[in-house]
Design a binder for these strands. Structure first.
Lengths: 116, 116
DNA sequence: ACAACATATCAGTGAGGAATGATATGGACC
DNA sequence: GGTCCATATCATTCCTCACTGATATGTTGT
């Protein structure tokens, strides 16, 4: 009934929460990490190897993903093993790919916001 | 078989395409616009009224959404009516809400990247 | 305790996006 | 044709995020 200023009581509107969650996914490095973790849980140095990102960069992104609750971690000896926290994340990534089947060309062409 | 540098032939990796699409959704203004359009097609000035964004701002975001293929437009007299381009977009937004049911607190708390 | 590996943290830098304000384009009606 | 309304475009400013490099913390094995 109030589209513009909804849910002010929870500290953020539903839209702001959605935007923030989307932002968690809106980075190639984080997506590469999530993609790798979708196949199997991995330790940080394994993620570094697979994604070819720097170690500190991976660590920074992992912290973000961890804080957001998108991944979870368990210590395993001297390693720390990260994993996808919920199958809904995999589902979401699949949906995006499905949407990309339709809008891929447009997205690549877009030059305004959100791009390149 | 090649996770890091896949699909170079299409000009962008699958991951880069996904990231760019996510970015299209990763902004409160664009989400507010999409949210409004999910209920019904709207002319620009109607979007402006509902979202309380400035006209030029809405126009800029609409161009981005249009280029990305997330919305479509039809001229209707002196108005230009925008609408969601595919039901998959609505589906994606619903999935995000479902994921938010699980990770909402974490996302709001996250302070590293993707935030505030 | 020490060495070697694994991971986290932090300051600084650079680039890109989001909003604004002013202006331009374009259709409709008199 | 001219005015009004609807929409698009452009330059500028500000702000935030992503990366780097160096360093700190932590764990295992000897």
């Amino acid at each position: 009934m109030d589209h513009v200023v909804a849910d002010r009581n929870t500290g953020a509107t539903a839209i702001e929460r959605r935007a923030k969650l989307f932002r968690g996914f809106a980075d190639p490095s984080r997506l590469a990490i999530l993609d790798a973790l979708c196949e199997a849980p991995l330790a940080v140095h394994e993620i570094v190897t697979r994604t070819e990102l720097s170690q500190s960069n991976v660590s920074n992104h992992l912290r973000c993903l961890l804080d957001c609750g998108l991944v979870a971690s368990d210590r395993d000896g001297r390693f720390i093993r990260y994993r996808i926290s919920s199958p809904r994340i995999t589902a979401l990534l699949n949906d995006v790919d499905a949407l990309l089947d339709v809008v891929a060309e447009g997205v690549e062409a877009c030059d305004n916001y959100c791009g390149e």
